[in-house]
Design a protein around this nucleic acid. Structure first.
Length: 433
DNA sequence: GGGAATGATTCCCT
DNA sequence: AGGGAATCATTCCC
């Protein structure tokens, strides 16, 4: 009973529900008496260490079973909340780390994290496409793939280990705190906070793991790409696409940035590869092509004719589609145009190349402004069928767009009239080079 | 194996 | 910055 009265005094201004009324509590105005009470409690606590284990256990049990204990602990927890812990807690709030996000994104992109096969395969595919090669490099690819999957495996094993350790440790700490909460005031919030702290510590370890994994991937990637610095020919399909563009824009074979991008996409040449080079792969190709074409136009004649024929077929189909379209739709914006944005068959110099096939001449570049759909179709049909567009009345043609100096740029606005009869070889005539 | 073809690089020019 | 020209290095093809 004496013990209980002490407790009651200690609780001071605390209601039975455990709510704080006022602290400290000058109970009946006597400071000296309060001090003595506290002294008694401290004395009791100190003497516990002197007691035998059984005695102490019994006392502990008595305390923990005390009906006022929850209220007391509640108050103490509140006090703790309002002091240092709460400050630390607020400081520990960590915003989503951008660095961690970057690492996560990279690991995902490289196929290390994320779904088992998709990511890795995608990364390998990207690397493969980056060099525009086919299955002939399967050995190297599988090597890269094997190494990547090795990294992936190590990463996942380590990650799993960390997670397991984190969970074990968290559980252990939680159990410990719950156990201790019987004898000392620990609020669930505090346990939660502790768990958060543990998680943060482990996530910082995880970040280190992610960082080193990223480094490993970067090293592997650089080695892999370095190995591919060795020149490799583009796939036939890629070359075909580039050639189609080149010969269908023969008067001005300077694709715009957008066109290059699109061509790169079509040829499965990735942007990542592009970024590693001073010049883009597509730019390289066009640069080489222009020079080699100019140097030896005769040699490219056959190729030019081939692509001209190809585009002619496609154009005929396109025109047929356009005609059909015009019959069903109301007038729309015509889509023919030449240089600039990438538009394959049905545009630009395709018609010019075709002229070489059938011996007639068309303007190398026909401005399309103000043209009605009917005009455009009529023009297209005329071109496809191989006769000049009488409506234009200006059959200017500068073969390949090459000027007298061997340059291309003047050809965009042809100024000289060439011989109206040039035959199949018209694709390469003007060759002072 | 050797020459042709071809992609990349470098230097220079505009 | 982008293109031309020369050149290198590698791959392709006979």
């Amino acid at each position: 009973m004496e013990e209980q009265s002490h407790l009651m005094q200690t609780l001071g201004g605390v209601t039975l529900a455990g709510h704080l009324v006022a602290l400290p509590v000058p109970h009946d105005g006597s400071d000296a008496r309060n001090k003595q009470d506290i002294g008694d409690i401290l004395h009791q606590i100190m003497t516990i260490t002197d007691q035998s284990l059984d005695e102490a256990q019994a006392k502990k049990h008595g305390l923990s079973c005390h009906r006022m204990k929850p209220a007391l602990f509640s108050v103490l927890c509140e006090i703790k909340e309002k002091t240092g812990l709460s400050i630390r807690g607020s400081q520990d709030e960590d915003p989503s780390d951008p660095q961690l996000m970057r690492l996560d994104n990279m690991l995902l992109a490289e196929g290390v994290s994320g779904p088992e096969k998709g990511g890795g395969a995608a990364a390998v595919a990207a690397a493969t496409a980056a060099v525009g090669v086919g299955a002939d490099n399967a050995i190297e690819h599988s090597d890269y793939r094997a190494k990547l999957s090795q990294i992936r495996q190590i990463y996942h094993t380590e990650l799993e280990k960390y997670e397991q350790a984190c969970n074990e440790f968290t559980t252990h700490v939680m159990n410990l705190l719950r156990e201790q909460s019987r004898t000392r005031p620990i609020s669930p919030k505090e346990i939660e906070r502790m768990v958060n702290i543990i998680h943060r510590k482990f996530s910082s370890i995880q970040m280190q793991l992610k960082q080193s994994t990223c480094e490993a991937v970067m090293i592997l990637r650089s080695r892999f790409l370095d190995a591919r610095r060795k020149r490799r020919n583009f796939s036939k399909q890629a070359t075909e696409i580039l050639n189609e563009y080149f010969y269908s824009h023969l008067s001005n074979p300077y694709p715009s940035e957008e066109a290059k991008e699109e061509l790169a996409k079509k040829c499965a040449i990735t942007v990542s590869w592009k970024l590693m080079k001073k010049r883009t792969v597509v730019s390289n190709w066009f640069g080489n092509k222009r020079i080699r074409y100019k140097k030896n136009i005769g040699k490219f004649q056959e190729e030019a004719n081939l692509y001209a024929a190809k585009t002619a077929v496609t154009a005929t189909q396109a025109v047929a589609a356009a005609v059909q379209n015009s019959q069903t739709n109301s007038p729309a914006t015509p889509s023919s145009g030449s240089s600039g944005s990438y538009s394959l068959p049905g545009s630009g110099d395709m018609f010019m190349s075709m002229s070489g096939l059938n011996g007639s001449y068309q303007p190398a570049h026909v401005p399309n402004t103000g043209q009605t759909q009917g005009d455009s179709i009529r023009h297209a049909i005329g071109q496809s069928l191989g006769y000049s567009d009488g409506l234009r009345g200006n059959p200017l043609y500068s073969p390949h767009g090459l000027n007298g100096n061997g340059g291309w740029h003047d050809a965009v606005t042809p100024s000289s009239v060439t011989s109206p009869i040039e035959g199949a070889n018209s694709v390469h005539s003007d060759t002072s080079n």
